[in-house]
Design a protein around this nucleic acid. Structure first.
Lengths: 240, 240
DNA sequence: TTGCCCCTTCACCAAATCTTAACCGCTACG
DNA sequence: CGTAGCGGTTAAGATTTGGTGAAGGGGCAA
């Protein structure tokens, strides 16, 4: 029981069985569930370290399960890896902005999937690592498909704008100075006119429309993505 | 930018100037010092994230500076990058085991040096890495997010005010003279009208409202942040 | 090659912020 | 009391910073 626990919710035994086998061989403790309702119940009682969730499920479908997981404070933080059958479904997932942390399309290779699982589990607090989807405040970025969605409607971002937003979105609330944004958006390269960032930010804001306010200017420093939900900054924690 | 701060101690302007320029362009906040004594003082008031130290210095030579930095608990953990003129000197330095964290021989290329600097800063140093959050008496400063919070409500500080408060807050009870506060808030530049600080202190106090008393005036010397584990902060007087 | 898209610069403006300097009142001390 | 020194206040002027419109260049596909 000292191992990490994974809850696998999928009704297709053809998927479920080999996957659970593979995961167990990697040393994980795997619990299987074959429909949404049961999966949800187990998630809430087990509080596993990770949930692998099929999009198409009997009784309650995957998206709804995901939504409910996110709605419950006990399960809110558990990483969810979504399995989808068709590529188009991804759009749906991304579009509904259900907060899956990553997803994989079926059919999938076992190795890469296990890798993704490990990556998600390795991530302790920071939302980083090899996550391909980031989603905040109604904006979802998928860097695999290079798609940006804001509340159903797709955002036609240019590569630079995308990387910029990706960087900001990955660490909401953190302020980045123009240099950081510079080499985040433009690979390496280094020295360019810092103000270039401003121009990109501008066009980004234009495309974000009403959501433009989420990209905040921190005068004298740089930019940051608004991060409101929680307020708690460790009070007396980091004293010298 | 109240981002990472570097103290550069080197008397050769031919080295010092271009290096500080390069580092600033990378987004660091650089303070220069041109002799060992001054450098040591500044290190203790600034508590920078990194110190670049020339081995050959007027007044107090580099090794001695390094030794004293290591002897002071406040500066003990700050990474030191040593600059030496000749390769043989490195052996000497290493031999004395003064605890420099890295060495670079002059002449050096700018790029690699900046790389080393970044590496040192990235490294989760001995204990905990550089402090990004400071919190005292109900006031919390977070330089990563660039947020100042006093009892739930956010303080809209200007960059200078932020740095000022950051400096005071990091060493509560310690009195800083106006020069120290000057180069803490004004990154470099040095001798401007000292009274400028007074004006900043005033606007800082205004924004602190009831907590203004925490920024104390030490007549004839400078300012300090109140340290005493104070009991109750004025209850109703919160309005400005 | 042309046209289009995207990135980068540049110039200009308004707003935010910093500095300076003058004026005041308070405090310490004979 | 009287005075010098020091910090508090204020307001105006100087400077910095970010927003914006537009021009120029490069890459790429038609």
């Amino acid at each position: 029981m000292s191992n990490q626990q994974i809850l696998l919710i999928d009704d297709e035994r053809g998927i479920s069985d080999p996957l659970s086998y593979a995961l167990r061989k990697e040393g994980f403790e795997v619990t299987c569930s074959y429909d949404g309702q049961d999966g949800l119940r187990r998630a809430q009682s087990l509080l596993p370290d990770l949930i692998i969730l099929d999009l198409m499920l009997p009784l309650i479908e995957g998206l709804e399960v995901c939504r409910q997981l996110r709605g419950d404070p006990r399960t809110r933080e558990i990483p969810v890896l979504m399995l989808t059958a068709r590529t188009e479904e991804i759009d749906e997932v991304v579009g509904f902005n259900m907060g899956a942390d990553d997803y994989v399309t079926k059919p999938f290779k076992m190795k890469p999937l296990v890798q993704r699982v490990k990556a998600l589990l390795r991530r302790p607090h920071l939302k980083e690592q090899s996550v391909d989807v980031v989603s905040r405040q109604g904006i979802t970025l998928d860097r695999l498909h290079h798609r940006a969605v804001a509340e159903e409607s797709e955002l036609p971002l240019t590569p630079t704008e995308f990387k910029l937003l990706w960087t900001l979105l990955r660490q909401p609330g953190r302020t980045f100075n123009r240099n950081e944004l510079m080499d985040a958006s433009r690979g390496e390269d280094a020295n360019a006119f810092e103000r270039t960032i401003d121009v990109h930010v501008r066009s980004l804001r234009q495309k974000l429309g009403a959501r433009a306010v989420l990209v905040e200017t921190v005068r004298g420093v740089g930019y940051r993505f608004r991060d409101e939900p929680h307020e708690s900054i460790p009070p007396e924690a980091a004293a010298i």
